[in-house]
Nucleic acid binder design. Structure first.
Lengths: 203, 203
DNA sequence: AGCTTTATTGACAAAAATGTCAATAAGAAA
DNA sequence: TTTCTTATTGACATTTTTGTCAATAAAGCT
C-alpha cells in the first residue's frame, strides 16, 4: 500500500499545473456526469486535491465554472479552426472537412453539452473571444468565393446550429426511432451538403 | 393593503389544482430563469405557497422535477401533434405547417431549454410516452407517401434535431453574427425545404 | 351545528454545499 | 543549510437547500 500514516507527503504543483489539473478533472466530470456534478467536493475529489485547494486557485466555485467555460471554449475554437485548415484540395473537400470538424468537436468531444450548459446558465455572453472566433470563421468561409458573403454567413450559422443540435440531441433522437447512434450525424451532413449545393446553384 | 395580521386566511385548493398551480409556477421559472432556479424556495415563492406545501404534493424536490418534466413533455407532444393536424390543403402546405409547429414549440415556448435540461440530467429516458409519441409522428409523416418510409424517418429525425438546435442556440448564434434573432429559424426552415424537395426528387 | 379529512403552514431539524483560516510542508533562493 | 514564499490541507464556520412535524383551518359530510 502507498498510504502513509505519519509521514505527510504532498504533491506540490506550479500554480498553472495545479489549475490545469483541476480544470481537466472538472472537464471530465462535466462531460461524463453532466453539469450537476460540478460541485466543489466532486471536482476536488476528481482532481485528487482538497476542497480548499480548488478555492485557493479559483476563488470560488463560480470562479472555477468561469475558468472551465473559458478553457473549453478556447479548446473548442482552436480545434474547429485547426481541423478546418486541414481541408482537402478542392473546395468541396474543404467544405466537407469543416462539416466533419464541427460534428467531431460538438458530438465526440461533447462540446455540445458545454454549449447547452452555457446557454442555460446564460454565462457565455461575457466571453468576448467567442465573438471574435465566430467572425474569423465567417471570414474564412466567405473567402472561398463559391457562395455570396451573405450565403456564407447563413452557412456558418446553420452549420453550427445543426452541429450543436445533433451533438446534444442526435444520439438520443436516433435511438428513439431505432437508428444507430451515428445516424443523426449522417443525415445532418447530407442535408448540409444538399443545402450547400443549392446555394452554389442559386448564386 | 390586503395584508392581515391576525385573521388567518388560507387558499385551500383541490389537490390537482394545487399541483397545477405549483407546476405552472415552476414551468414559468424554468423558462424565464433557467433550470438553476428550480429550488424549493423559489418555486414555492413563485407559486405563492409555503415550501412545505410543495413537498406535501410532490414528496421531494426531485419529485417536483419529474412531475414538471412529464407535464412539459406531454404539453409539447400534444402541441406538435395538434399543430401538425392543422396542415394546409396540399402536402407541401402540411409539411410547412409541421416545420412551423416544431419551431414554434421549441423556440417560442422555450421547450428546447427543457429538452436540453432533460438531456444534460439524463432523466428523460424514463418517460416512455416520449417514445410512443415519436413513433406516432413518424407514422403520420410516412403516411403522406411523398417520400419513402426511410426518408420520412430521416426527415422527422432531422427536423426535430434542427428545431431543437435552433430553439436552443439560434438566437444567440444569430446575434453573434449580427443577424436578427429570427434569422436562424428562417435559414433552418429554408434548409429543411430544400432537403425535403431533394428527397422527393430522389425517391 | 358538529365531525372528519386533509391542504396548508410556521418553526424547526437535517443535510449539503460553499467558504475561512491557521498550520504545514514542498520547493526555490539565499 | 537556512530562509522565504506559497501551494496544500484538515478542521471548522457559514450559507444554502432540503426535509420533518405538529398545529391550524378550509371544505365536505352527516
Amino acid at each position: 500500500m502507498s498510504i502513509r500514516k505519519t509521514g505527510k507527503i504532498r504533491v506540490r504543483r506550479a500554480p498553472e499545473d495545479a489549475r490545469e489539473n483541476i480544470l481537466a478533472a472538472a472537464e471530465r466530470l462535466l462531460v461524463v456526469e453532466g453539469p450537476l456534478a460540478l460541485k466543489l467536493a466532486e471536482v476536488a475529489a476528481a482532481a485528487g486535491v482538497a476542497n480548499a485547494s480548488v478555492l485557493h486557485h479559483f476563488g470560488s466555485i463560480d470562479g472555477l465554472h468561469a475558468a472551465l467555460m473559458e478553457r473549453m471554449v478556447r479548446q473548442l475554437i482552436a480545434e474547429v479552426l485547426a481541423l478546418a485548415d486541414k481541408g482537402g484540395p478542392t473546395r468541396d473537400d474543404t467544405q466537407e472537412a469543416v462539416f466533419q470538424a464541427l460534428f467531431d468537436v460538438f458530438e465526440n468531444r461533447n462540446a455540445a453539452r458545454l454549449a447547452a450548459w452555457l446557454e442555460l446558465t446564460g454565462e457565455w455572453r461575457r466571453m468576448t473571444h467567442v465573438r471574435e472566433a465566430v467572425r474569423e470563421v465567417v471570414a474564412r468561409r466567405a473567402s472561398f468565393g463559391d457562395v455570396t458573403p451573405k450565403q456564407a454567413e447563413d452557412l456558418v450559422l446553420i452549420s453550427v446550429t445543426l452541429a450543436m443540435g445533433a451533438g446534444l440531441f442526435g444520439r438520443a433522437l436516433a435511438e428513439l426511432i431505432g437508428k444507430p447512434s451515428g445516424h443523426a450525424r449522417e443525415v445532418a451532413t447530407e442535408m448540409l451538403r444538399v443545402f450547400h449545393a443549392a446555394q452554389c446553384e442559386k448564386r
